[in-house]
Amino acid sequence: MPAIDRMNEDVVLIVDDVPENLSLLYDALDEAGYAVLVATNGESALQRARQSLPDVILLDAVMPGMDGFEVARQLKADADTQRIPIIFMTGLTETEHVVAAFAAGSTDYLTKPIRPSEVLARIAAHVQSARQTQQARSVLDAYGQACVSMRPTDGALLWQTPLARTLLLKYGGPDQQSLVSRIHAWLHIAVASPPPPATLEIMGEEGRMVCALHGLTEEGECLLVLHEESDAAMTKVLVEAFRLTLREAEVLYWVIYGKTNRDIGDILGISHRTINKHLENLFEKLGVETRTAAAAVAMRRLQLPAQTETKKP
């Protein structure tokens, strides 16, 4: 099999146990410029999907052994393959079979007999949608945003940015099921609440993880934004966001919570005059002139609510 050029070719995995279907689809997709992989049973489909990570999967619903529904469930349960769009191909048009397909993780479905022109149109649409979604995730990754997409019906995690994955591991441990179940239970209430929804706070040994509902996608997925609140974590964010020294970030952190210069001096063990010098420097770096303005800029960067200043003891 020739090497796949991932830079110039979209990859389609066809899973079907009928040679005539494979031949028809292979020829149509190959002529349209796709790189085509094939599998004739569920086990080989899972193996090839995990090895090649295709851009879209055409999946036959009814096959001997492992059927398409089980293949889809396993693909969606795997973090490496859960993002791949799955288009079911089936002659089963009864409502319960269509529902089962979507419940298993299908993005779309086609009824047999397969019409190549319709297949090409569906694939093009889903590949483009998946590419745009991936670009959005890449932007979130680049800006260090901790974001999670969760399906509200069953609490399945559809994707996470690297920072979100780190936070979920930190606050949920290797087996994150308990944490995910708690987030799902909160999400069920948050979706039904009038905006803005309440946040969920997960306490840890060194701080807390705050989970907020950012919005719903067109596909009905819930986009959650996570951030960590702890003295050390938030100070680190301020250092990196505004190019502050560690001491300047510590001063700004306590300004956010409404502490006076005397309070900050006592907390950090430095003089009031030194606090003033640090404030002058960070005001210049933030482009502000007052403590209130500095606190507002920092709170927006830390995604803290406006009432934060009154909460910190």
Rank of each mutant, 00 (worst) to 15 (best):
M89K: 06
M89V: 12
M89F: 13
T90C: 02
T90F: 01
T90L: 09
T90D: 07
G91K: 05
L92Y: 02
T93F: 06
E94M: 04
T95G: 00
F102A: 00
F102K: 06
A103C: 01
A104H: 03
G105C: 00
G105A: 04
D108R: 05
D108P: 01
Y109R: 07
Y109A: 05
L110R: 08
T111R: 09
T111I: 02
T111F: 09
T111S: 15
I114K: 04
I114G: 06
P116F: 00
S117G: 09
S117M: 09
E118Q: 14
A121R: 12
R122V: 03
R122E: 00
A124V: 03
A124S: 14
V127I: 15
V127R: 14
Q128H: 14
Q128W: 11
A130N: 11
R131K: 11
Q135G: 02
Q135E: 13
A136C: 11
S138I: 08
S138G: 06
V139H: 06
V139W: 06
L140G: 03
D141E: 15
D141H: 11
A142Y: 03
Y143P: 02
Y143N: 14
Q145G: 05
Q145N: 12
C147E: 13
M150V: 15
R151A: 11
P152L: 05
T153I: 08
T153E: 15
D154L: 05
A156K: 12
A156I: 12
A156N: 07
A156W: 12
L157C: 12
L157Q: 13
L158E: 15
W159L: 05
W159N: 13
P162D: 08
L163M: 14
L163G: 09
A164V: 04
A164K: 08
R165D: 15
L167Y: 13
L169W: 11
K170L: 07
K170D: 10
K170V: 05
Y171L: 00
G173T: 07
P174A: 13
P174H: 12
Q176V: 08
Q176K: 12
Q177G: 01
Q177D: 14
L179H: 00
A185M: 09
A185Y: 04
L187N: 00
L187I: 01
A190W: 00
A192L: 11
A198W: 09
T199R: 07
L200W: 02
E201Y: 00
M203E: 12
G204T: 01
E205P: 02
E205D: 10
E205L: 10
E206Q: 13
M209H: 01
C211I: 07
A212Y: 10
A212E: 08
G215D: 08
L216Y: 11
T217M: 06
T217V: 04
T217S: 15
E218P: 01
